[in-house]
Design a protein around this nucleic acid. Structure first.
Lengths: 103, 103
DNA sequence: CACATCCATTCCGAAAGTGGAATGTATTGG
DNA sequence: CCAATACATTCCACTTTCGGAATGGATGTG
């Protein structure tokens, strides 16, 4: 089972997640949205499912995929130690701008 | 030039960024920290550099790498539309727990 | 000026990711 | 029951990625 970061490396898979964040969708709808063929779409969805980022249910002969946001929370948590690093940057920039305004 | 998400897919590169978030380090120090050989370390650093996640400067015959957090801000921004999705989940969970406490 | 150190780069071979075509399976419609 | 629809899966070629070994360049040291 791969990590969420592995699944997020592909831009089409990120686009799938963006689409699923709006509403759940079938494989065919996702394929049309991303201009992908059906097998490629199913394979990308399998990667997302293995990473726990999507889940699916059956509805007639269609398969409806929905977003599972929990792994993205882990990504968000991973970013936490870095937020301090870039807030330091913004603080430095703000101080610099203040110094420019103050003659 | 690859996207930040491509660089983040590898766990060792993520560990490098974590180490560089604490302080800047030379290639040799990173190699020892991650138990990688020097060429492998340099290659991973090249990926991070191409993604704009690190920068380097020369200090004698050593090369010192430092974190460049800006691309991580983009990752953070990408997560924004999803935060609503998982806050909805937490709200639903909280409501559920409230209902359990309330007989 | 040798010689060692620190690192980037190149050249392999192995492994993994990706798309297309074909095939298999379950469900629906006639 | 038979054909069509909606997917998943398998097989195959192609490309990319990755590590190790070897090499080369630049900077110190004696």
């Amino acid at each position: 089972m791969p990590h969420a970061f592995d699944a997020l490396a592909d831009p089409r898979r990120r686009a799938m997640l963006e689409a699923l964040a709006v509403q759940e969708r079938s494989v065919g709808e996702l394929a049309e949205l991303l201009a992908l063929r059906q097998p490629a779409t199913s394979k990308h969805l399998a990667v997302l499912r293995d990473a726990g980022l999507v889940a699916d249910r059956h509805e007639g002969r269609r398969r409806i995929y929905r977003l599972v946001p929990e792994p993205l929370v882990e990504v968000d948590d991973w970013l936490t130690p870095f937020r301090e690093a870039w807030s330091r940057r913004f603080d430095a920039l703000a101080a610099h701008l203040d110094a420019m305004e103050d003659p």
